[in-house]
Amino acid sequence: MDKAELKEVKLLATKIRKDVMEMLRHRGYGHLGGSLSIVELMAVLYGKVLHVDPKNPQMEDRDMVVLSKGHCGPAWYSALAEKGYFEKEKLMTLNDGGTMLPSHPDRTKTPGVDMTTGSLGQGTSSAAGIAYGQRLKGSKRFTYLIVGDGELNEGQCWEAFMFIAAKKLSNCIVFIDNNKRQLDGYTADVLYPFDYAEKMKAFGFNLVQTVKGDDIEAIYEAILKAQNNTDGANCIILDTIKGQGVKFFEELKDNHSVKFSTDELKKAADDAIAELAKEIEEEER
């Protein structure tokens, strides 16, 4: 990734982050922490990696994305809107009755959303099936599966990981968003997870990389490496912060789902939006 590309992806990340904040602030509540922790990943995927066409979301033989941690739809919607899958104004319809942007992704409602998710764990198997289908068709495309660390409490994830590894579905690149927190608190307190990298290796993934989840270049390099590992299963663990990129919300104790109910929270969101707008202005200069 050259300097100009890095600048472009970074700008996309900032825009996605601002969109997420604006959507949730407008709505008054939402899954803030986990949406923000995957912003850089979304920016790398949609800014640099994916073979897709926003004007033709159903394009034959495209790369596929499955956001198994479906409650973080706002981050995905923002990336899709920024790439032109639909008008940015639609973002403010999140969770409205009849909206095309429901709290959890729905493949029947949103252009660019290839799989419906929300019941945690299920997206892992769907992604495995999509990747298997790509392979059956002789496609060289990839399926990018995004799983939450808290989501790994679900047994279905591990069934899917066994399958992905056993069938050597190298085209299914698994991202674990290790933001260390889930609804009830720290993952380490809720259900101690032990070592994700060791677990994935033990499940048969032959390339397990851990990168800082806000490091655009590192995420990109890891994806390139995974794409070239065609004889096994690929996992990229993103070392992220829940609420990533907005200090106030990183430090907020319960940041899984935030309700902007107090003046302090409203101001924090407004300040963040203003700050991000300023950053975008500077980055675009």
Binding site: S126, G133, A166
Partner: peptide, 24 residues
Amino acid sequence: RFIQMGIAEANMVGTAAGLSVEGF
């Protein structure tokens, strides 16, 4: 096109759904 899933029915159903997304 015979896919042995092992004793993992939940994953079997989800994998089937993913294959359907790909047009199978």
